[in-house]
Design a protein around this nucleic acid. Sequence first.
RNA 1: GCGCUCCUGGCUCAAUUGGCAGAGCAACGGACUCUUAAUCCGUGGGUUCCGGGUUCAAGUCCCGGGGGGCGUACCA
Length: 488
Amino acid sequence: MAIEENEFIVNRLEKLAGIREMSIAPYPPHTPERLPVNTLRATGETEDVLSTSGRIMAKRKHGKTVFCDIADPTGRIQLFINKKNLDEESWELLGKMDLGDIVWVSGALFITRTGELSVRVVTLLLLTKAVRPMPVVKTDADGEVHDAVSDPDFIYRHRCIDLMLNEDSKNRFIARSRIISAMRSYLDSDDFLEVETPVLQQIYGGAAADPFVSHYNSMDEDCYLRIATELYLKRLVAGGIHRVYEIGKDFRNEGVDRTHSPEFTQLELYEAWTDYNGMMTRFEEIVQAAAKAAGVGSVVNFGGHEIDLTPPFKRVPFVPTLHEKSGENLFDWDAAKLSALAAKLGLGDDIKDRPTLLDKLFDHYVTPGLIQPSFVVDYPVELSPLAKQKTDEPRITERFEAFIAGLELANAFSEQNDPLYQREVLENQAALSQHRKGVVDQEFLYALEVGMPPAGGLGIGVDRLVMVLTDAMSIRDTILFPHLRREQ
RNA sequence: GCGCUCCUGGCUCAAUUGGCAGAGCAACGGACUCUUAAUCCGUGGGUUCCGGGUUCAAGUCCCGGGGGGCGUACCA
């Protein structure tokens, strides 16, 4: 397929041909020595000839003088290009340059009459000719941005343009990488071992979600993209890797919305000799480290809320809080009664199963009020098959979910390590499963049978944490290349 | 999946009740040797997402399709 042709591309292709006719390579393989733009800015006025390179972001022509702004990742600087300072060929080349082209320049630095530090260009080289126009965004003297590219569809499909033109977006992705990096540093420095477990799995588990299904040709069997890393990481804990974590993609074949992506990044960590209380501390500390890495303070603005990230986070016990907010002892109600209440509240007419009902009712009565960082603790046992029950109340598990501004950021428990209990729960669950009736991860149970020490486990939704720390209202703004439908 | 809503030159947006498809930036030609949303003069650029329908007349109304956004549902 040939390049799409419109007025702009044709025009640039002609210039490209013209440049080649001048025997100038429009895509030379080497970049001459250069300094980052911000180094030039820091240097200030000097008669020394310095060089840099960057993309032409603006061009203001004044006859025999041309001002260009060029940008590299470190900043933006003005070029002062005067015909008398250049050889004829370079001046001709300048005429064939467009916004978006990438150039190398050298010259002394001086301050113009209007006070702008500029490169008095004596050498001008083309490093890359742009044949496709980029949208032109201008910022006026008041700092107001005009004609910003804001169409989400355009931005997600052409992230290169978004990163080039939208500072907020670029900074958000930089923050994301730093946040992940900070998580690693925090865990590594506390003797956690980072591992990689299978993405392609024969038996998926560790969460309740529909998987993406694939097929392994040479084995002639279906396989699945993982929905969680939990069941593999716990085998490692049983095997003696007592502090272990993995940061990676999980895939869930479910609906997409502001807070759900089919492909999302999760940090799961497991730690022996501790429990869910230890995981609360881990979460608090990870959030601290992440906020620091993102360059935000202990109070962040997210979706119009002032969020105070200072630990300790609030503890919100599931059953008592549900009772308090609803005014009823719902945990003692049977499914039929709960179902009637849920229907009355418009939460759904056909929910019959007690744990789901309790969860829904909790979401209705309590979750919306969880603006400041909170741990919802001690979930009903039916909602938490992989968690350990409390010793004094077997209907309740040692589990928490962390919420900020109503957003679920983490899920953790004191890990269930009773192999007989775990087998029974998983087999019962598998018997009810629509998709994979009776399929249980036997190898995971084998590990528990061999014996896994008491441990706490914690899963953190990395994309969502990035949302909170960078004030992004959609998870798609935290994922470089979110999934979109095919065009056409 | 369902509901609401949006889709107009490269980009950002106009177009009254259905009545000649426009502007700014960008592009092209010209003037201009300190501008910075440079300015001034001139020029070109449209299958109004796609396909049907109603109408003398459709960017606008109706039906179907595609894509996006928001909400909702599913989501241990």
